[in-house]
Amino acid sequence: MKIEPFGQSAVLISFENEIDRAVHNKVIHLYERCKRHPEFTFLIPAYQSLTLGVDLNAIDLTNALQFIQQLAQEEDLSQTLRHVRKITLPVCYAPAFATDMPQVEALTQMDFKDIIQEHQTHSYRVFMLGFVAGFAYLGKLPQVLQVARKATPEKRVLAGSIGLAGLQTGIYPVDAPGGWQIIGRTPVSIFDASKDNPNFLRTGDEVSFRAISEDEFRLIEIKQEAGIYEPELEKDA
């Protein structure tokens, strides 16, 4: 673990330089410990790092570095995560939503049916919320689904779109520009500005995908508008 100042009022804590659940567990444990302390004005948990804002009126940077070191030693950061939320996201992989499927078929040399099957087979960790309004970065993708980003990003990718890029699969929370290869769309509202926690997903969640028809897509949309949609969510003991 490396702890260093980042600018004059933030601290960067980095773990092993890899994308892996075991490394990310450390980030989450330290994030959970630090977020209880008001000295830290903001927290950005990422794949293998945690960025913390420091309230310099409460603690100076040198003492903050020591304090974080101390917090990190108070528990075993490597232990597995508890109370993980397991979310199943319905995804419609129909051509109308899977705008880049032909490209992904060409890149992976797989049939779209196998791509959809493979995408649903695994469970993915939410490693990070970032980009715009909490774009969810999930991983890791099995090797067969790892494709490069588009050379030229699209100006507008619609909210709910599910994309592939390198080791990651991601969900667009709002309409945004982007270069991920889009293979489907979820009708579930990922970002709701009327809520205190506008993002449905949280860093550390485990997400799997379930293929749905276009009819079920519409049905879920209608249920959401009526406020009667129940997310498919269970919590680990």
Binding site: Y31, K35, T41, F42, L43, I44, P45, T51, G53, L129, G130, F131, V132, A133, G134, F135, P173, N197, P198, N199, T203
Partner: peptide
């Protein structure tokens, strides 16, 4: 909006 960055919200 300092304090909402874990949700990916800009400062």
């Amino acid at each position: 909006r300092t304090g909402h960055q874990h949700q990916g919200i800009p400062f």
